[in-house]
Design a protein around this nucleic acid. Structure first.
Length: 680
DNA sequence: GAGCACTGC
C-alpha cells in the first residue's frame, strides 16, 4: 500500500493534530445527541439556544407582519416558537399553524410539543397529515403538512381560522412550499392582522425578505433573526486538483482515511445506485487484501429492500469501521448514527422537466452549496467530524448557492389546477417566489385543455376541471379515474393509481445473482398489456397471498411500498365514493376496459411503431424507446402504446407503457384526434 | 440491452 500523502488542504490553518485530540469513544446511540437528557422538560426548554431570542421574536412579530427566522438544526425553533406564541396569547386570535414538508416530522413535532406541555396530542397541540388527524376544538397549535394547508385554502381562502402561520423548512423550496408562499403573500395583503414566520436556512434568508416586501408596505415587513445550532465542528478538506473519476477517488479516499484516521464511521455520497454498487465492489477488493477485515462496507439507496437498508443502522463490532456508500437518501431522509467522516463526490442527480417534449431529464450536475453544507453536516452529529470534498476549494466557491426550486424544473399541471381552483385567473402573472419558465406553464395549460379540465378561456370546467383540481394526484391519473367511474372499472383503476403513487415496489438487490433471481421473480406478474396491468397483478397477488412480508421476499417486492399502496388505495376508494360520488365497480377481469380507461387519461402521450422499427411520438414524430425497466422491453413490439412518463437519459425513454388499439384514440378523445393524422 | 435522488394532498 502506498503511503498516505496529504492530498487535501484545509481552508483554515488549524493543525491537523487539533482534530485528533479530544476524540471520545464513538457514540453508538441512534438518537440525536441531547446534552441535557437528565434534566426536566422545563429546564431543557430553558437551555435551548433559541430561548434567549424569545422576547425578540415576540417583539418582532408585534411590530412586523413577516418575520424570517434563520436557525440551524438543533436550535429548537420548530418546537419552541409555537409555544412562545401560545404562551404570549397569540392563540386567542386564532390558531397557530405550522407547516412541515414531510408527514413524519409533522407528527413527531406535534407529539414533542404536546409532551413538553404535559398534554396529550389532540388537545391544545394537534396535527393533521394525510391519513391521520389529531385535532379537537381545543387545538390551538396545529402542525400540518404543506399539502394539507393548501387543501384548507380551498375551503377557507383567507385562512381565517389562523392568526399566525409558521412555514418551517422553507429553504427546501418544494413545489408546495413555493405555491404556499405565493398564496400567503396574497393573503397577507388582504389580512393585515395575519402574521407569517418563515423558518429558513441562512442561504435563503435575504431572498425571502425581498419576496415579502411590497410597495406601500411597512419597510421592515420582514425581520431576520439568526439562531445558532448545536452541531459539532466539522473540518473541511478539499482536493488540490480536480479528480477524473469520483467513484475511484471516493474508494481511494475511504481507504486512506481508514488507514490514518482514528475510529469513527464513514459516509460517502454518490449519485446513483450504479455508482454505489461500483464503489462497493472496488472497496471490497481493498478489504480482501487485508488479513483481518477492519472495514465493513454497506450500500444504501432507495430501492433496496427494508431489510438490507436496516443493516446500515447496526453498530459494527469493536475494531471494525463501518463505511456507508449512499445516494442522496442519506442527505436528508435517513440519518445514519455514528458518522464522523463524510466524503462528498460533489455531484447529484436531478430531474428536470423539458416542456418541448414534456419529458423529464435525469442529469448528473454539481451539487449546490446548500447540499454540500448539508452533506458535511452529517459528520458533525455525534462529535467533531471531517468532510472530504472531492473537488477543489475554487470549485466549491463557484457552486450555485442552491438547486433551482422544484417549481422551476417540474411539470406544472397540478400547480396550475390548484391555483385555478383558488380563483387565480391569470397564472402567468401569479407572484411566484421564483417564477417558472413561461413555456412550462403553457405546456401545463395545453395539457389541461386537452384533458377538458380548462375551457377556451382558461376557466376550470365543471365537473371535470373542479374534480381534477380536488383529487390528490396528477391531472392525467385523475382523468383516468373520472372515466373509469363511467366505464365501470374504478376499483381496478384506483388500484393502479395507488401503485403508481408509491416508490418502486420492485426491489433491486445488491448482488448480481440476486438481481437475476429478482428479474425472474418479477416475470411472474408480467403481462403483454404492459406495466400498469402488471402493477395490478402484483397488487392482486399480494392481497391474495395475505399481504405478507414473506411473499414480498419471495418475489423481490418492497413490502413497505406495497403496504403504503394498500393504505392509499383504501383512502382513495373512500374518497372517490363518499366525496366525489364516483361509482366503485370492478370490471371482473375485463382487461380491455381497463386499458381503455388508461388511454382516456394518457391519450396525449401516444407512440406508434414506425416501419423503421422504432417508436415515434404521435404528436411530434420524435423517436422514443421503451425503457429497459418496462415489462414491454422484452416483448414483441405493439403498434400503438400510451406511456405514463418520458425520461431523457441516453435516449428518450417511455415508462409505464400500456398497449392500446388505434381506434380507441378517436373513440375516447375525438376532440384531440380528429385533426391529428397518423403517418405510418 | 439500460440504469431511478427525495417529498406531498
Amino acid at each position: 500500500m502506498a503511503t498516505f500523502k496529504p492530498k487535501f488542504i484545509k481552508p483554515d490553518t488549524d493543525d491537523a493534530i487539533a482534530d485528533i485530540t479530544g476524540v471520545e469513544e464513538p457514540q453508538t446511540s441512534t438518537f440525536v445527541y441531547n446534552a441535557n437528557h437528565n434534566l426536566g422538560l422545563t429546564e431543557q426548554r430553558e437551555r435551548l439556544p433559541i430561548r434567549k431570542y424569545r422576547d425578540q421574536i415576540l417583539y418582532c412579530l408585534e411590530q412586523h407582519q413577516v418575520v424570517i427566522l434563520v436557525g440551524e438544526t438543533g436550535s429548537g425553533k420548530s418546537t419552541q416558537v409555537p409555544q412562545y406564541l401560545y404562551e404570549w396569547g397569540w392563540h386567542s386570535k386564532g390558531c397557530i399553524g405550522i407547516t412541515e414538508p414531510r408527514r413524519v416530522s409533522t407528527v413527531t413535532l406535534a407529539n414533542r410539543v404536546a409532551q413538553e406541555r404535559g398534554e396529550l396530542v389532540g388537545d391544545t397541540v394537534g396535527y393533521a397529515v394525510r391519513f391521520q388527524e389529531r385535532i379537537s376544538n381545543e387545538t390551538k397549535i396545529k402542525f400540518v403538512t404543506e399539502g394539507i394547508l393548501l387543501r384548507e385554502l380551498l375551503a377557507d381562502p383567507l385562512l381565517t381560522q389562523y392568526s399566525v402561520i409558521i412555514v418551517d423548512e422553507a429553504h427546501e423550496r418544494n413545489m408546495l412550499t413555493d405555491l404556499l408562499l405565493g398564496l400567503l403573500k396574497k393573503i397577507l395583503r388582504k389580512r393585515s392582522q395575519l402574521k407569517l414566520i418563515i423558518s429558513s436556512a441562512t442561504i435563503d434568508a435575504s431572498f425571502f425578505s425581498e419576496f415579502f416586501s411590497w410597495p406601500g408596505a411597512d419597510k421592515e415587513v420582514s425581520v431576520k433573526l439568526s439562531i445558532e445550532g448545536r452541531m459539532h465542528a466539522v473540518h473541511h478538506f478539499y482536493l488540490n486538483e480536480p479528480c477524473a473519476d469520483y467513484v475511484k477517488e471516493t474508494v481511494a479516499t475511504i481507504w486512506k482515511l481508514h488507514q490514518k484516521e482514528p475510529p469513527g464511521d464513514i459516509l460517502a455520497f454518490l449519485t446513483g445506485q450504479e455508482e454505489v454498487l461500483e464503489a462497493l465492489d472496488l472497496i471490497k477488493e481493498y478489504i480482501a487484501s487485508e488479513e483481518t477485515a477492519t472495514l465493513k462496507a454497506l450500500p444504501m439507496y432507495g430501492s433496496m429492500s427494508s431489510q438490507d437498508q436496516l443493516s446500515v443502522f447496526f453498530t459494527p463490532p469493536k475494531g471494525v469501521r463501518k463505511v456507508v456508500l449512499a445516494t442522496n437518501i442519506a442527505e436528508t431522509s435517513i440519518t445514519i448514527p455514528g458518522i464522523v467522516y463524510v466524503i462528498d463526490c460533489g455531484y447529484v442527480k436531478v430531474k428536470w422537466f423539458n416542456p418541448t417534449t414534456c419529458s423529464d431529464s435525469l442529469m448528473v450536475v454539481p451539487v449546490s452549496k446548500a447540499s454540500a453544507i448539508q452533506r458535511a453536516g452529517r459528520a458533525g452529529r455525534v462529535r467533531p467530524g471531517k468532510v472530504y470534498r472531492l473537488y477543489t476549494k475554487q470549485d466549491y466557491d463557484a457552486l450555485a448557492p442552491r438547486q433551482p426550486p422544484e417549481l422551476r424544473r417540474s411539470e406544472l399541471s397540478g400547480a396550475v389546477l390548484q391555483l385555478k381552483a383558488l380563483g387565480i385567473g391569470n397564472i402567468l402573472r401569479f407572484d411566484f417566489p421564483s417564477p417558472p419558465p413561461a413555456k412550462n406553464l403553457l405546456a401545463a395549460l395545453e395539457t389541461l385543455y386537452a384533458l377538458d379540465a380548462l375551457d377556451e378561456e382558461g376557466q376550470l370546467t365543471k365537473p371535470v376541471g373542479f374534480l381534477l383540481a380536488e383529487l390528490p394526484f396528477t391531472a392525467m391519473l385523475s382523468k383516468m379515474l373520472h372515466v373509469s367511474g363511467k366505464l365501470g372499472c374504478a376499483e381496478e383503476i384506483i388500484t393502479i393509481i395507488a401503485m403508481l403513487q408509491v416508490q418502486s415496489i420492485f426491489s433491486r438487490p445488491v448482488s448480481a445473482a440476486a438481481q437475476q433471481s429478482g428479474r425472474i421473480a418479477h416475470r411472474h406478474f408480467e403481462v403483454a398489456e404492459g406495466d400498469l396491468i402488471t402493477l395490478l397483478n402484483v397488487y392482486t397477488a399480494f392481497v391474495e397471498e395475505g399481504m405478507t412480508k414473506e411473499f414480498c421476499g419471495q418475489y423481490y417486492l418492497i413490502y413497505r411500498n406495497l403496504k403504503r399502496a394498500c393504505e392509499l388505495r383504501e383512502q382513495l376508494i373512500n374518497l372517490a365514493r363518499k366525496k366525489y360520488g364516483i361509482p366503485i365497480f370492478s370490471c371482473k377481469g375485463d382487461v380491455e376496459l381497463i386499458c381503455k380507461c388508461i388511454t382516456a387519461g394518457f391519450f396525449t402521450q401516444v407512440a406508434y411503431l414506425h416501419h423503421s422499427g422504432v417508436y415515434r411520438q404521435i404528436s411530434s414524430g420524435t423517436e422514443l424507446a421503451i425503457h429497459p425497466n418496462s415489462t414491454l422491453y422484452t416483448l414483441p413490439q405493439a403498434q400503438y402504446v400510451v406511456y405514463g412518463e418520458l425520461l431523457q437519459t441516453t435516449k428518450l425513454f417511455m415508462n409505464h407503457v400500456t398497449v392500446i388499439k388505434k381506434e380507441w384514440l378517436t373513440e375516447l378523445a375525438p376532440h384531440y384526434y380528429q385533426q391529428t393524422t397518423v403517418r405510418d
